[in-house]
Amino acid sequence: MRKIIGVFLVLVGLLQAQVLKEVSFDAYLQGFGYEERSAMKIRTPDMLALVEEGKAVLVDIRFKEEYAAWHIAGSLNIPLNELPKRYQELPKDKLIVTACPHNDRSNMARLYLTLKGYKAVYLNDGLLKTADFLRGENAKEYMDELKTLKEKK
């Protein structure tokens, strides 16, 4: 009986571990329409709202020296060139928001993750705009929400 339960648990575990379906670059481009054009990006206020709700992860894809100089609290740092080695650290059940100071590198990172099967968008207005947005009251609200999110976990 114990064995059967064990096998059952393993099966349930396997079902729950989401398998991401990779997309070929060709297929992605062939399916690229107006909808994807706007769905592939997100702006700072929407991104922050999703991060605060725990539905999205902000991934800062700048080099580690850049991240060391400054970064947004609550973000993950995976440099663009380390993404192929480390993308599996990212949660499969959340929206991945790739970000850099503007949006050139984040766009590349998003494409890579999308082809790997992740649901990913890039931060259209860039991290500098996010920093600019997170002043005074906005900064306070974001920190409070991050704290609440951490306590829930």
């Binding site: 100089a69 609290a73 005074g136 900064a139 306070k140 920190m143």
Partner: peptide, 13 residues
């Protein structure tokens, strides 16, 4: 800036 602003994003040095 205020402490909470520095925590949200700041230059650690």
């Amino acid at each position: 800036r205020y402490g909470f602003e520095h925590h949200v994003w700041g230059l650690p040095f």
